[in-house]
Design a protein around this nucleic acid. Sequence first.
RNA 1: GGGCGAUUAGCUCAGCUGGUUCAGAGCACCUGCCUUACAAGCAGGGGGUCGUAGGUUCGAAUCCUACAUCGCCCACCA
Length: 877
Amino acid sequence: MEISKQYDPAQSESKWYAYWLEHKYFKSLPDHREPYTIVIPPPNVTGVLHMGHMLNNTIQDVLVRRARMLGKNACWVPGVDHASIATEAKVVQKLRAEGIKKSDLSRDEFLQHAWVWKEKHGGIILQQLKKLGASCDWARETFTMDADYSRSVIDTFIDLYKKGYVYRGERMVNWDPAALTAVSDEEVIHKEVESALYHVRYKIAGSIDEWVTIATTRPETILGDTAICVNPNDERYKHLHGKKAIVPLINREIPIIADEYVDMEFGTGCLKVTPAHDVNDYDLGRKHHIETIDVLNADGTMSAAAQLYVGEERFAVRKKISADLNAAGHLVKQEPYANKVGYSERTDVPIEPRISLQWFVKMQDLSKPALEHVMNDDVQFWPPKFKNSYRNWMEHVKDWCISRQLWWGHRIPAYYYGIGENEFVIAATDAEALLLAQKATGKPLTAADLKQDDDVLDTWFSSWLWPISVFNGFYSKEEVDYYYPTNDLVTAPEIMFFWVARMIIAGYEYRGEKPFKNVYYTGIVRDKMGRKMSKSLGNSPDPIELMKQYGADGVRVGMLFSSPAGNDLLFDEGLCEQGRNFSNKIWNALRLIKSWNPEGRLQPAAAAAAVKWMDHRLAQVITEIGDHYDKFRMSEMLMTCYKFAWNDFCSWYLEAVKPAYGESMDSTTQKAVVAHFESLLKLLHPLMPFITEEIWHLLAERLSPKDALVIAPWPVAGTCNTAIIEGFAKATDVVTQIRNIRKENNIPNKDALELYIRGDADADTAFYPVIQRLANVSVCHRNLEAPAQAFTFVILGAEYALPFGESVDTSQQVDKLIEELTYTKGFLIAVQKKLSNERFVQNAPEQVLIVERKKETDALAKIALIEQKLTGMGIAF
RNA sequence: GGGCGAUUAGCUCAGCUGGUUCAGAGCACCUGCCUUACAAGCAGGGGGUCGUAGGUUCGAAUCCUACAUCGCCCACCA
């Protein structure tokens, strides 16, 4: 059969993915085998595949495929997250484009639109993952708003409420004025911004010309000021205690209070207190029983309570009011100031602290086991450095605001029967709620008397149940008992607190057990210049296009080059190109092997030696690769495979066994090579599933689906005799030296040379034929005096000489010898200096001394040899 | 403001508890080759006083201390 010169990924990828699905290799059901489980970090339902997913899912697939080949019951659970804020924002945007405002729709109407949108766009990303080769058990695809899943979310809320962990309270929350919802602390990103510090003076009430000056970055909140606060120890302001000040522009009288919270050093040492718009002020306000005036609307415009600028946007007002204050003589000065401002992770608008009634989860007790079990490595982090930040967060964990003022998501199962703060019941259904409410009030309420909370739960309040709920673990034991705890979680450090920590918390709370054994943190995929990939920068390549261009295998390999755990990956298309080239290299190894027509002829000595070496080298590499997997060193694992395939297998092994031109292949060698190649394909399969499966089938007739590579047994390391490996390595060193001499002296490869070897005492002469084959050496003379006219070199104490005729230009050879002589002499001096140091000789361990003495003798021998050589050539030195 | 981590070849990174895997890998670069598996390739080669300054030690990329630079996480100083 004719095999094309270049590997064509397109046809083989679709063919083999369909084949794998058809034969249900990815399907998993509980059985007697050891399970190996990964739950996918569910991408947003509205998302499309980006480079981060590519990296993340490639790693997961590599792990799953290897586990499958190790004979484990490999189960990779796919799914998507409803992503309440992100999805709702997209639906709102889409509706707006159609001229429909969310506010014009009822909740049900809006949700209808949302579901239509979800059905249309949802899950695109999972289809894209198939192109990457992801070996998920697709029958298990889960959506966080599936019926059973939703039920588990609501039941968890109810359970935590009953346990006293969930509470409702008025708190200062992070308000997103664009999304019109509260967000959790984790969803706020602090950015350093250049702003201004405004020094504003307030008149003291009842005075003629007495002022107090405060400093603020947010002058628009002056309208909500209800106190001025100074430090009680501040001598400058003691006379003001108990007096009142007048808020500029609106002339409201506010008290001047004293509290040690105020930093005397900062600004003017006077703080304006706006309890409605600042967390600290809120606390101060409560402490000192100060009035609260909320001057902002939910959307960030000024409210009626502000009296001025009503309905105008907060940042526009900031400019206006500073001008107005200035005009009125209140602005003392304005200085540039760099401060941190919180931005919404989702909408990227500045967060507004806002007092509102929200639902919270008490975290302190709940999170204790989750801290402990990570610190003692029951749950292991890779790399472990992330344990530090995890601990830091867990030790200072704060209550989790779980209500969101959105419609898309799991609606909070709270039903109000009155407007009082505690006039509600928590229930899974309307009917149950009604019963509870009747019981609570002792009144014959009807459904119409109850109103369910309008808010939905934070998305992460559902995703934290993911490792349990994907197995329907709250309602059925069968699957969850088998698959849980899962093995490895592969995710980004960015969501360590959002998701990883909370899954661990939920795991211990609801299963009394960790959700996964290992957490592998990937880095962020950045562009070549180190910038985060983003739509707005347009620096993110389309993964689907990349796969078209370089093949899925090429891209997978490209992603894994240079991406150690926890390190950002500087993505460069060149890496995918390298991956594609690697595919092609393997492909051409197949072409070579397939071109042989083996005969029953005698096995050449070089081939026999190379085959033996490969047996041992393979064993060594299998062990090494296993070690890398165990330590989650993915890119090193890849690099080991890459170098083994390219250098050891192709460059040395195939070249050594390859029949000379015009000769045929012997069947003994051919069989051995095929067996070795098959082992290599197995090692490569998790990395490059498509091409390896393709080659696997081209290499031999595999009639039964049971013989597919995807489920082939992982290679077992045989014995590894390092002496054999070293022997071969020495042979390759000799070959390289000879090639080098040929090149430097323009000796064509086709001219056979004779090689004289001396002092190669403990050598395995079995590898001499390999030298002869690869360096075109006609004969190896052992322990025979070499002619004086020869190129020489020394490797590990043995001397090698290649005689040359008179015609060869030796000047380069002489230069090189002199250079080497100089270097070796310098080296000798250094070693001898060390050895003559009494303290070194006394203190260094025996082993080190032996090594140093050997260095000395080797160097002396080498110098003698080179000098002898030069003398023989008639050169003075 | 608190914490964590990094700094090794042009780039991306290995180098575990101080001494033969100590100065490494891949890519890039340079030179010569279209040699019947592969130019998406082959063969060969150059390149780093391991951020700076001290210290411990017979011996430091490796341990200690400062400093410099960069990154990340956490944090309610207006």
